[in-house]
Each structure stands twice: as C-alpha cells, then as structure tokens.
Amino acid sequence: MAESHLPAEAGQELRRIVRINEEIKSVVSTAFKINLMAMNAIFLAKRAGQSALGFGVLSNELRQFAGDLQKQMAALRETTYGSVALVTMLLKQSRISRLLGRAQAGAEGQGGRSLRELASRREETMLAESHRQMAVLNRRLSHMIADTAQLVELGSVLARSAKIEAAYGGGFSTSLMQVSSDFERTIGEIQRSFENLNKDQPEDIVA
C-alpha cells in the first residue's frame, strides 16, 4: 500500500526541495554579481576604445545572460513552490490514510467494511493522482534545470570568448584579461551549482 512508505518519502522530498532552493538562492546571488561585473566591463571596454569593441559586445551579452538567468531561476523557484504544496497534500492524505487504517483494524462489522471500502477508494483515486501530479511536477522541474544548464553553458562560452577578445585589447589587455577571468571563475561557480542540482534529481527522471 502506497501510504505505508509515503511520510518518509514526503519528508525526503521536502528536504530535496530545500537543497534545490538553496542552490537557486546561490545562483541568483551570483547572477546579480555577473550583472554588475558586466556593467563594469562595458565601461572598461568603452575606455579601451576600438581595440575592445568585441569585448564590449561580449560584455553586453553577458549582462543579458545574467538577466535571463535570474528570470529562469525565478521560474524554478515558482515550480519548487508548487512542489511544496503538493508534498503537503500528500502528507495530509497519508496521515488520513494511516488513521483510517488504524480505525479499520479495530472496527468490526459494517463499520469495518465501510472503512475498508473508503480506504481502498482513496488509494485508487486521491493518492494515485497525487503521485502522478508529483511525477509530472518533478519532470517539469528536471526539464527546467536542464534548459537553464544549457543557458549557463552559453554563459561559459561567452566568458571564454571574452578572454580571447581581451588578448586584442592593446594597452587594456591585462585589465580585460583580469575581468574575463573573473567572469569565467564566477560562471564556473554557477556550473557547480547546476551539477549539485542535477545530482538532486530523482533517479527515474534523470534516467
């Protein structure tokens, strides 16, 4: 019977959602940092003039990337909110099922039969439906994480390209190189967060 293992499962699910949320917060804060770094890089490229035109374009793109990333993380957070609501519903249903099960064990005659029928109907309908919804939500979350990881990969490519462009920065080359290395390191932090997020996906979904 599904309810017998549900509470432990739901508690684990809540803890998994918290771990995801903590990574989301970390990425949002890093994305904010990239936005500021990109703004400074745009000013630096302007000062460097003609020789840093390419660097300026990439800095603009990185700023856009930081904004897109923040939006994606907000959508992810919204989805985890939906997961908490669903896990709460599962917990409540499992508690009712557990109490009905105990009442059924002690009840005899028509009362006991009615309770058995009720428990069986709940099992077939409500709990099964909640499990189905949970699976759908987990799949959606997993896809969103995968899509956002691709966006982060784009950010990483932009940072690498900025490093190449920095080499053509003439007298500003050293400063531009420093900035682009900072971009690379910071986006590396985000990539590590996404590795953690991927580790936290349910196995059946990852497979």
Partner: peptide
C-alpha cells in the same frame, strides 16, 4: 506550503 516556501526564500 506558503510558510515553508517563504521561509526558504
């Protein structure tokens, strides 16, 4: 759900 999610932010 509302309290838990708000705390988490």
């Amino acid at each position: 759900p509302a309290v838990f999610s708000a705390v988490s932010t």
